[in-house]
Simulated assay, not measured.
Amino acid sequence: MKKLFSILAAILLLATSVTNAQVLVRTLPGYVDIIPYQLAVGYYSTTVIAFPSPIVDADGGSSEIIIQQQENAENILKIKAAVKNFSKTNVHVYTKDGKIFAFNIEYQDYPSRTTFDLSNLTGGENPGTTVLLSSSSLSSQQLQHTADSLRTIAANYSRKKNRYGITLQLSTIHAVKNILFFGFSISNRTNLDYELDFTRMYIEDKKRAKQTSFQRQEITPVYIDPIEQIAADSSMRMVIAVPKFTIPGKKIFTIQFFEKNGGRHIQLTIKNKHLLKASKI
């Protein structure tokens, strides 16, 4: 009996020691924080931000906001709500001069301030945070030259979507360094001009199971052909470049085209097998 009590006492002592043991953790000191800017974004308006240097990449924390670089303006970023009353999220922007800008994003129906020029920031207001950028990225001139050379290449893909008299077809995929170039053909077989408002690209789950979260990863283009309109009964070729990626299992890559002041939105899904057949120049 005494032996049993000794064993129980030892177990109790061990349990008490484990409970009282301190778990060693290290907290990042406050002086390493990058202080984010507060930014309100609306569904009925577009927020435009001019950065002091060309944008290398932009990353949003939620698929409920749309992030897009302005065509032919490599230092301009546009942010818009994809849905109303989205939950608070954040955005990080990396610029060519080695800076990182952080933003806390919240929803407002009609933000009072929608246009910002960050080149006017003083030294104390500028984040001044240095990041190491990949040396394999293409310059804006190289992106433009590559897109020009790919726009006339014959189509070697037949994946397409028809809707409202608009046909969106994947024509080509090319890999250049760490960039994927997608060539599209857009045909308008109606008597109404099709005005392109913006495009959106993301990786998402193939199927959405009930009572499970639906994950969506936004892809920010580094180059988009500046096409604003596809005239009635006509076709155009368009090139979009994004950082190189592959698609995980059970996911698809989706690109959406939104009509300005209209509802003829169209989307096309691309599978990993298409990416793996990307050609080299």
Rank of each mutant, 00 (worst) to 15 (best):
I7Q: 06
A9C: 06
A10I: 05
L13R: 07
T16R: 11
S17I: 11
V18E: 05
T19L: 09
N20I: 09
A21L: 10
V23N: 13
L24E: 10
R26W: 14
P29K: 08
P29V: 04
I34Y: 08
Y37E: 00
Q38W: 06
V41I: 10
G42S: 02
Y43P: 01
Y43R: 05
Y44W: 15
T47E: 12
S53T: 05
P54K: 03
I55P: 01
A58S: 09
D59T: 12
S62C: 03
E64G: 10
Q69G: 05
Q70K: 15
E71S: 06
E71L: 03
L77F: 05
L77M: 10
L77S: 02
I79K: 08
I79G: 05
K80C: 05
A81M: 01
T89E: 02
V91F: 04
V93R: 05
K96L: 08
D97C: 08
I100A: 11
F101V: 00
F103M: 01
F103L: 00
E106N: 09
Y110C: 03
P111Y: 14
S112A: 11
S112Q: 15
T114Q: 09
T115W: 06
S119T: 06
S119W: 02
N120F: 12
G124W: 14
G124T: 12
G128F: 09
G128D: 03
S135Q: 11
S136A: 12
S137H: 12
S139G: 07
Q141W: 12
Q142V: 05
A147V: 04
D148W: 04
L150R: 07
R151M: 13
T152Y: 15
S158F: 09
R159I: 08
K161L: 05
R163P: 02
Y164S: 10
Y164L: 03
G165I: 04
I166E: 00
I166V: 09
I166L: 06
T167Y: 04
I173E: 02
V176C: 00
V176R: 08
I179N: 08
F182N: 03
F182T: 00
G183P: 01
N188Y: 03
N191A: 13
L192I: 15
D193T: 13
Y194H: 10
R200P: 00
K207R: 14
A209E: 11
A209G: 07
K210C: 02
F214C: 02
Q217I: 13
E218D: 15
E218P: 00
V222W: 12
Y223W: 12
I224L: 12
D225W: 14
I230N: 00
A231D: 02
A231R: 13
D233C: 07
D233V: 14
S235H: 11
R237Q: 06
V239L: 00
I240V: 15
P243N: 07
K244E: 07
T246Y: 10
I247C: 01
I247A: 01
I247K: 03
K251F: 14
I252H: 06
T254M: 08
I255L: 04
E259A: 04
K260W: 15
K260E: 14
N261P: 01
N261E: 15
G262W: 10
I266A: 01
Q267N: 13
Q267F: 14
N272E: 10
H274S: 09
L275K: 03
L275A: 04
L275I: 07
S279K: 15
S279A: 15
I281K: 14
